[in-house]
Design a protein around this nucleic acid. Structure first.
Length: 211
DNA sequence: TGGATGATCGTC
DNA sequence: ACGATCATCCAA
């Protein structure tokens, strides 16, 4: 299912699901799909897979359902769940979540942060869940041996909104960002200053679907 | 081998 | 609008 689906379909499947690490559980309310290299089934110049397999992105070329973690701007640990079968490249970036369990642990991890913003944005989400580079490759569907587990619970189709991905300098007009309508935890849309000028009007600038 | 570059975020 | 901060990539 997650293995065979196109990246944007996989993103919709992951949306609404619960990710658990120890005492902390969150419900994913915002995601982005990322594809593969030029020769792949889903070419995506904005993806880390675009140049082909490297040491850094190798887990994205492995089987679906594993964590691809990368360090953003030397500071933030951003978390993806890989999609596509082994050999293909693809993943779903987890961009925002609602904290469901583990408030006590998180209050120590992220002191003084309000509930709706504690896991808003991929860097904040990674910090809240306590995930870093050492979690790269973890199988989130292996309940017997994995420290991080995922259980799907996709929202109804009419509750899903979409728009362009945040901060990408290429493919900036591809609508591969998805979020749950009305979710307060969803992050704000920002177009990359390096992206070419808008080629088509963007309706949902605020990223809340008007709800 | 080293300089440039971000799928970011909080503060100014 | 800007700086923090470093793994990774690529040119040399």
């Amino acid at each position: 299912m997650l293995r065979e689906a196109a990246p944007d379909e996989a993103a919709r499947m992951i949306l609404g699901g619960t990710l658990t690490h120890g005492a902390v559980s969150v419900r994913i309310v915002e995601v982005e799909a990322y594809g593969g290299p030029a020769a792949s089934a889903h070419p995506d110049a904005a993806a880390h897979t675009w140049p082909g397999p490297t040491e850094r992105n190798q887990v994205m070329f492995g089987d679906a359902g594993h964590l691809y973690v990368y360090l953003s701007h030397g500071i933030h640990h951003c978390v993806n769940i890989t999609c596509r079968p082994a050999g293909e490249g693809g993943g779903v970036l987890l961009r925002a979540a609602r904290l469901e369990r583990g408030h006590d642990v998180v209050s120590i991890r992220r002191p003084g942060v309000t509930p709706h913003t504690v896991a808003r944005g991929p860097g904040n989400l990674g910090r809240t869940l306590g995930i870093d580079m050492s979690y790269r490759g973890v199988d989130v569907f292996n309940s017997s041996s994995s420290p991080v587990l995922f259980s799907p619970d996709p929202p109804a189709t009419d509750q899903i909104r979409s728009g362009p991905r945040v901060g990408v300098s290429r493919e900036a007009d591809r609508h591969w960002r998805f979020w749950i309508a009305g979710a307060r935890e969803v992050s704000a849309y920002r177009r990359s200053p390096r992206a070419p000028a808008v080629t088509r009007p963007v309706v949902d600038t605020r990223g809340d679907g008007g709800q």
